[in-house]
Design a binder for these strands. Structure first.
Lengths: 193, 193
DNA sequence: GCGTTCATTGAACAAATGTAGAATCAAATG
DNA sequence: CATTTGATTCTACATTTGTTCAATGAACGC
């Protein structure tokens, strides 16, 4: 069996490891990579610092394990509705940004290793968007869309001292709809002018 | 005279202090607050670490002095051209973001003190934009505009591994024009539906 | 010219941090 | 029950970092 009875050594370890990962995610999210100490993570997980090292090898490795859990937003469906899909994904992020994504975002600005990991994720996301945009400059349009999404997320969830932090998601989405339509529009079906 | 002859003690001090501030700005910009060490700043300025402390008192104070130099973008002119002004300001930021602004941006995500300082600056900027928008939800629109600007700046100058990093500013601006128009538009003069 | 001021340096300290290894104690195994 | 394995903790170390303080030497005022 891969699921031994609770209380067993293997199960206990799995639980402890999960607790450490949770505490680490929380710490990296709120404090960023540099300000997060192994001792603090260990303490939050109710565990000794040495154990964290024993299980994860190093702080960098622990960090990598945390951001490995960051999901890449999925785009699917007909290209005509690209704008609406992007808006829908953004709406979800307005309600509650996945902690891992924000962790990544915050840490990539201070931690070189996080930067490359995050860049990869962002690139994947942009590629998905670009695929859904029927235009010669689809890549740039996708990058702009991604940048806007990023800016909105950062303003709302990280900076916080902002009108956006408390705004009604639906209102934000409706204000951004023309934006996204003009960026994701097929040439000829796009905005005015 | 407030400008004594060159080589004088006062002048020498002024120059040294400026050199330290420059080195600090550069260091905070590229490395963020936490990863920037006083020794590294001092070394880059060709000076001893003790001198930095002697002049600026503490790392926090040095940081404050650096971000005090961050300019707040100015908005002026008739509200009808609000969108074009925002785009013009963004165009400048695309060419070369002021180092101080980016320093602020990067550091505010890791340093609590930087966060409040930056929030104040952003709030001033948003207030200026909001003034130029004749709409009931001007504040939220301004916040979104500010967030978009932030997202574009971060993507281009901080993340870099992005289509935006190498994109032609004019093309970016033209793609964003419908966006900004729809957000800064007077009700009735805005985008389609 | 002489004593003072001040820019600047060098050495050193205390605290924090990532990390390593020995020690401990319960669970697994025979 | 005896032995071993592995989860967990304790102690300690080396390094880094912000910070302090005494020492030095050149510019300044008299």
């Amino acid at each position: 069996m891969t699921t031994p009875r609770p209380g067993s050594r293997a199960e206990q370890r799995r639980r402890t490891e999960a607790r450490i990962l949770d505490a680490a995610a929380q710490a990296f999210l709120t404090a960023g990579y540099e300000r997060t100490t192994i001792r603090a993570v260990a303490s939050a997980a109710g565990v000794d610092a040495g154990l964290v090292m024993h299980y994860f090898g190093s702080k960098q490795e622990l960090f990598r394990r945390v951001i490995d859990a960051a999901p890449v937003p999925e785009m699917s469906g007909p290209p005509e509705q690209a704008a609406e899909q992007i808006l829908a994904a953004l709406a979800i992020r307005l309600e509650s940004e996945p902690a891992a994504s924000l962790t990544l975002l915050r840490s990539m600005l201070t931690n070189p290793e996080a930067a490359s990991a995050a860049s990869a994720g962002i690139a994947r996301y942009e590629a998905q968007i670009a695929e859904a945009i029927p235009a010669g400059d689809a890549d740039l349009r996708a990058a702009i869309i991604s940048a806007i999404t990023l800016g909105i997320s950062v303003s709302r969830h990280l900076i916080k001292a902002d009108e956006l932090a408390t705004a009604d998601p639906a209102q934000v989405i409706s204000l951004l709809r023309p934006c996204m339509r003009s960026l994701a529009a097929s040439p000829g079906h796009g905005g005015p002018s």
